[in-house]
C-alpha cells in the first residue's frame, strides 16, 4: 500500500499588522489578503519531498474554516500536493480546540477512503498562533504525535523515525503510523509554486465536507464555546526609551552598564 499523507493547512491573513474592530472585538479583516499560513509551507514541502522519495505516495492538503479556506489548499496543490479537501466549518478556525475536532473528523473521512499514514502540520499559525492543533488532532484521533520535528529520517507505511528539536537538544523518536507530525522551519527549504502546479491548483476539484458530512452538528455548540476569543486589543505602547550617547564606544558601554545595573537586570 502506497504511503498516504495528509498535510493540514490554514488560510490566514497575509499580514500580522491588523487593527481591532471595536464594535466586534475581532480583527478587522475587510480587504485583507489571505494566503497559506507561512509555517505550513514547511509541512507542505515536506509532504511533497516524501512523495518524491516514494513513487506512488499520495498527498492531500486539508483545510478547515469558511469557504475561503480552500485558498490554502489550492496554494498547497500549486506547491506540489496532489489533491485537496476542505472542512467548511466557518468560525471553527478561530478556536484551536474546535478546529482540531473538525479536522480530526475530516481526517477520519479521508482515512476511511484510503488509510492515512502521516498527518503533517506546520509549527503554528501567524493568526491564532496556538501551536496546538496538531497535538490536539492526534489526541482526538488517539494517534501518536511528534511535534517540533526538524527532520524525518526513515519513513514507510509502518513507522517513521524523526528528529525532534527540544528546548535542550535533539531527540530521536520512533513512532508507528498512522501518526501526526508537527514540523519546524529547519526541516526544509520550501520551493516556490511551479507554473505547472499553479495550473493544477486552478483546475483541482476539492473534496468539500460540511457539518452534516462530518457529523459535528451536535457537538458544535460545546466545541465552539469551550474556549473562545472574548476580546482582542492592541498591546499598550512600550514606555519611551532612553538613548545612550557618548564620546566613544567605551563611554557608551560604561553608560549602558550603569543603566543596566540601576535597573537591576545585570
Amino acid at each position: 500500500m502506497a504511503l498516504n499523507i495528509v498535510v493540514c493547512v490554514k488560510n490566514t491573513p497575509a499580514t500580522t499588522a491588523l487593527a481591532v474592530d471595536p464594535s466586534t472585538g475581532k480583527a478587522k479583516l475587510d480587504g485583507i489578503q489571505f494566503a497559506l499560513n507561512p509555517f505550513d509551507e514547511y509541512a507542505v514541502e515536506e509532504a511533497v519531498r516524501i512523495k518524491e522519495r516514494f513513487p506512488g505516495a499520495k498527498t492531500t492538503a486539508l483545510a478547515l474554516g469558511p469557504e475561503r479556506a480552500e485558498g490554502a489548499v489550492r496554494e498547497a496543490i500549486a506547491r506540489g500536493v496532489d489533491a485537496g479537501a476542505v472542512a467548511v466549518l466557518p468560525g471553527w478556525e478561530e478556536s484551536p480546540y474546535a478546529a482540531a475536532i473538525g479536522l480530526a473528523k475530516a481526517i477520519l473521512k479521508l482515512h476511511a477512503e484510503s488509510p492515512v499514514h502521516l498527518v503533517l502540520f506546520g509549527k503554528s499559525t501567524n493568526d491564532v498562533a496556538s501551536g496546538l492543533v496538531g497535538a490536539l488532532v492526534a489526541a482526538r484521533l488517539d494517534w501518536p504525535a511528534v511535534i517540533s520535528v526538524k527532520k524525518i529520517d526513515a519513513v514507510d507505511e509502518k513507522e517513521a523515525t524523526v528528529h525532534r528539536m527540544m528546548e535542550d537538544g535533539v531527540d530521536l523518536v520512533k513512532t508507528p503510523l498512522p501518526a501526526v507530525i508537527g514540523t519546524v522551519k529547519e526541516i526544509n527549504d520550501p520551493r516556490l509554486p511551479s507554473l505547472k502546479g499553479k495550473m493544477a491548483a486552478k483546475k483541482a476539484e476539492l473534496k468539500i465536507y460540511r457539518d452534516a458530512d462530518l457529523g459535528v452538528g451536535a457537538e458544535a455548540d460545546a466545541a465552539l464555546k469551550a474556549v473562545s476569543l472574548a476580546k482582542l486589543s492592541p498591546f499598550p505602547p512600550r514606555p519611551a526609551g532612553v538613548r545612550v550617547d557618548g564620546v566613544s564606544p567605551q563611554d557608551k558601554a560604561q553608560k549602558l552598564v550603569a543603566i543596566l545595573a540601576e535597573r537591576r537586570v545585570i
Binding site: T16, A17, A27, N126, D127, V227, A230, K231, S233, F235
Partner: peptide, 26 residues
C-alpha cells in the same frame, strides 16, 4: 476563567474566555 495570550505575531492581545467545565492552561 479568562486567559490572556498574544496573537497575530505578537501584535494583539487576546482575552480567551473558557466555558467548558474543565480548562487546560499552558
Amino acid at each position: 476563567v479568562t486567559a490572556k495570550r498574544s496573537l497575530y505575531g505578537g501584535n494583539l492581545i487576546g482575552d480567551f474566555a473558557f466555558a467548558s467545565e474543565r480548562q487546560v492552561i499552558l
